[in-house]
Design a protein around this nucleic acid. Structure first.
Lengths: 135, 135
DNA sequence: CGGTATCCTGAAGGATACTG
DNA sequence: CAGTATCCTTCAGGATACCG
């Protein structure tokens, strides 16, 4: 599991100064979860509206069931995603953002949007870089 | 190499609509580079000021030489980081942000800052979640 | 439908040694 | 100092099968 690493907080080491540059700081793990490969995309999708599991899977190109479930669990545990399981048959589970998750998602969305807008510049930079490398 | 996957752009598939949810869109790779484990931290560090290689290594807790070099190369290729090698002995190489890189770094910094400020809430959420799981 | 369990492979990434 | 090269380990993550 993704969450296992710095998972449980040790009682003797409670809430230290948050500093991502410190490898032992819990903020590092939170940042890792939020910026994880599928984390960003999940947060961004849920920003539109709540999604059901397979619906979300279709929305996000290339996720496997396993990674979607795993990443959702991680985000749920961190308090970013709300899992609402309806006791019906067939099962129905809705995933949505918590208020905390929405704040995070707004920031990742800003990043996503910026990236989408600047892809051409990046591709140009790559071309120039590769041209130099060949010479 | 990290950059190898969707590296070279194919002539017949030039600059499609940018959509991170499409697994074949180049924006996906750009987002992956920017949000990569060390990418965020490197961008954020260089936001303070230019850094030399080992200086940067010390600034960022837990990076190996290999990953630092690799991630720097990726970010340089994408046009986010400028590598300035001085022809002196001993060697001196300064890394800094390009204007494009600074824009990206400002966004990742917003995310980093938000995360650092909300770590306590996330840790609380984790505690509550784990408590539920045990019951 | 919405998962979990298991297995397996390729890639990420660390450690070490070496070089200009 | 600033890397590269090599080796080796870990783990992300895909495929498949099964379950409530």
């Amino acid at each position: 599991m993704v969450v296992s690493e710095a998972g449980r907080r040790i009682a003797e080491y409670p809430r230290p100064q948050a500093d991502v540059f410190d490898q032992n700081c819990p903020s590092r793990s939170v940042l890792d979860h939020v910026t994880s490969r599928w984390g960003v995309l999940i947060l961004d999708a849920l920003r539109e509206r709540p999604y059901r599991f397979n619906e979300l899977r279709r929305r996000i190109g290339g996720v496997s069931e396993k990674m979607l479930a795993q990443t959702l669990q991680t985000l749920e545990r961190d308090g970013f995603v709300l899992r609402d399981a309806h006791p019906v048959i067939p099962p129905r589970v809705d995933y949505s953002l918590t208020p905390l998750g929405r704040q995070a998602a707004d920031l990742t969305d800003a990043l996503k949007t910026w990236v989408e807008q600047h892809v051409p510049e990046v591709l140009d930079a790559r071309d120039r870089h590769d041209a130099r490398a060949e010479a």
